[in-house]
Design a protein around this nucleic acid. Structure first.
Length: 569
RNA sequence: GGCCCCAUCAUCUAAUUGGUUAGGAUACCACCCUUUCAAGGUGGCGAUACGGGUUCGAGUCCCGUUGGGGUCACCA
């Protein structure tokens, strides 16, 4: 059988960063193309001139490239690893619909001449009234051409330059969509409307542009979200009017929040607004946000702040808003391959077993590009489970990565989102990374594991509970042992993890003490808390001079009450 | 409301053409290990929405009910 090349496409509208739902669609489009040795087209649907921006388009390319999704045809893009994406090898561009208006115009003309399309002059008010009437009668609003219209007169009005839209004459027979996921879906003719194909501003509507471009770009397989299912009969009607073949459709289930609500970019505003209200924030704490803008945003639950302002406000309130866009996940320290893996599992699974008999669900994008098939796509919507994504991310960091590869990823993340970590760690970075890795779930929380090494000696805050438990309790109590431990530390040479550990062990054995009796007092003295990596690593990372300084400070600050209450820094 | 889609543990899901003690993962709980944390080990909890059919036999096929979702723009 001569294999017809599989060509898929991802066609976002550039109104913001790439949403995780869109990311999954793009991932599957890519995987389907690659699994069939085909091509993936990326097309920017920017026919809504008011809402589209080139910045957003650029951001989407960057998001896709970061995920590792590689489009063959589309806007050319060179990512940070100097890898190039896109281009126009097949000369089917341009890939911005706003640059294709002359192409659409030819098809509009042909449709009018063939009598499939006609100009309509209804005002928004008139359409609104018709819609209201339909709603009152509990019907869906379906626009149909008036039966008594004078076609020639209408064309004359159009040619005279009167404001108008172009509508497609709906077919009078049922349309069945053969969906690869859902099976046959039939829409009766009375449900079909004369939809707009060219707006008053001359730009094509989505329905029209998508059909023309998919045809011209040779798209054979259309994967998209189920929200498009109801549009599909329109697209098929258009294809028939234009004499075009119908590609294979596959509508994927949708992804929702755990509470069943739509995963929306507004969720981030909502999250921060709720916290702002809870903390009785009544004036803007961020210079970039004007008092008026702040007041409006607080009051209107649908209002959205610009991304950077919202982020500044969230940081001020010490909040981590929920991740919605691919860029949010990147910032939060998720690995692109892990995100792809998790996303792929929402609505698809490889149907394979691991060697131990459990279901295979951890795989990389290369695997997906090899094994992806439409027939294993599910039909029902799913809820986004951040806990599972986090577990996958932690698992990859802790089990799959090496210290070296983790250090490289973390270094890149720091450089992009928090360069001060790099400065404060200096040449200790690799050691710190190796210590943080087993305790790291995302690149953004890696620093938490070694926070004590990021601060100055006199900035250590001694936690009351830790002090009470490890320094004041027991006999002998930890505090009383500190002078001896200080001497032990001072004598250690070299000051390296193994030497420190064995020094501590020898000390314990000599005193017939459990390791906890020694490790915990030291840990509290050095870090201020009862939690840190292994004792040897912790002390070595801090360095001998700082360790001694911190022990001295601890002995001063945590001296026993009541005569010497801890002084406040 | 009309039209359309969907329905297995809390969540993501598996179950060759109808035959399984309905499996796995995440989360949660318990215990073990342990210098803290993390990790690891062992075990536990936990589902075929409901009602009718068809069949020797139904998670799987059919009908209905209920529930959820999508859509009904000169947005995509």
């Amino acid at each position: 059988m001569p294999a017809q090349p599989v060509i898929t496409r991802f066609a976002p509208s550039p109104t913001g960063h790439l949403h995780v739902g869109g990311a999954r669609t793009a991932l599957f489009c890519w995987a389907l193309a690659k699994a069939n040795h085909g091509r993936m087209v990326l097309r920017i649907e920017d026919t809504d001139r008011k809402r589209s921006s080139e910045d957003a388009a650029k951001g989407i390319l960057e998001d896709l490239a970061w995920l590792g999704i590689h489009w063959d045809d589309g806007p050319a893009f060179t990512d940070e690893h100097d890898q190039t994406h896109g281009g126009d090898d097949r000369t089917v561009g341009p890939f911005h619909q706003s640059e294709r208006t002359n192409i659409y115009d030819a098809h509009f003309k042909a449709l009018i001449e063939a009598g499939h399309a006609y100009p309509a002059f209804d005002t928004p008010e008139e359409l609104g009234a018709m819609r209201a009437e339909a709603e009152k009668a509990k019907r869906s609003f379906i626009y149909r051409r008036p039966p008594d219209v004078d076609a020639d007169a209408a064309l004359a009005r159009m040619n005279a330059g009167e404001t108008h839209v172009l509508r497609l004459k709906a077919p009078d027979e049922a349309i069945t969509v053969h969906d690869a996921v859902l099976g046959d879906v039939t829409i009766q003719p009375e449900e079909l409307d004369d939809f707009v194909i060219r707006k008053a501003d001359g730009f094509p509507t989505y329905h029209f542009a998508v059909v023309i471009d998919d045809h011209l770009m040779g798209v054979t397989h259309i994967l998209r979200g189920q929200e498009h299912l109801a549009n599909t009969p329109r697209h098929v009607a258009l294809q028939r009017a234009l004499g075009l073949a119908t590609p294979l459709y596959a509508h994927m289930p949708l992804i929702f929040n755990p509470d069943g609500s739509k995963m929306s970019k507004r969720d981030k505003d909502k999250f921060v607004r709720t916290a702002a209200k809870d903390s009785k924030l009544d004036a803007t704490p961020i210079d970039a946000i004007t008092p008026d803008a702040f007041a409006f945003w607080m009051k209107d639950k649908r209002a959205q702040l610009p991304t950077d302002q919202l982020r500044a406000l969230a940081a001020h309130l010490e909040l981590s808003p929920p991740e919605i866009d691919v860029d949010d996940f990147r910032r939060s320290g998720y690995l692109p391959d892990v995100l792809c893996n998790y996303l792929a599992l929402l609505g698809w699974n490889p149907g394979m077993k691991n060697e131990d008999g459990t279901d295979l669900e951890r795989f990389d994008s290369a695997f997906l590009c090899e094994r992806f098939t439409l027939d294993r796509l599910g039909k029902s919507n799913s809820k986004f489970d951040r806990a599972k994504l986090l577990a996958f991310n932690a698992d990859t960091i802790q089990k799959d990565l090496t210290d070296a590869s983790f250090a490289e990823l973390w270094r890149d993340w720091c450089a992009r989102y928090d360069p001060s970590i790099l400065e404060r760690l200096g040449d200790r970075f690799d050691h710190a990374a190796a210590m943080a890795r087993p305790r790291t779930k995302t690149l953004s929380d890696a620093a938490d594991a070694i926070r004590f090494a990021l601060i100055a000696d006199d900035a250590v805050v001694f936690d009351d509970k830790a002090v009470a438990k490890s320094l004041r309790k027991g006999d002998p109590n930890g505090l009383s042992m500190l002078p001896e431990l200080r001497a032990l530390v001072e004598g250690l040479d070299p000051f390296e993890p193994e030497a420190i550990e064995s020094g501590a062990k020898a000390f314990c054995e000599a005193r017939e003490l459990g390791m906890g009796k020694v490790a915990q007092p030291l840990r509290v003295a050095i870090t201020g808390t009862s939690v840190s990596p292994g004792l040897g690593d912790t002390l070595a990372l801090v360095g001998k001079a700082s360790v001694l300084a911190r022990i001295d400070r601890c002995m001063g600050e945590c001296a026993p009450e009541p005569n010497n209450p801890p002084s406040l820094p």
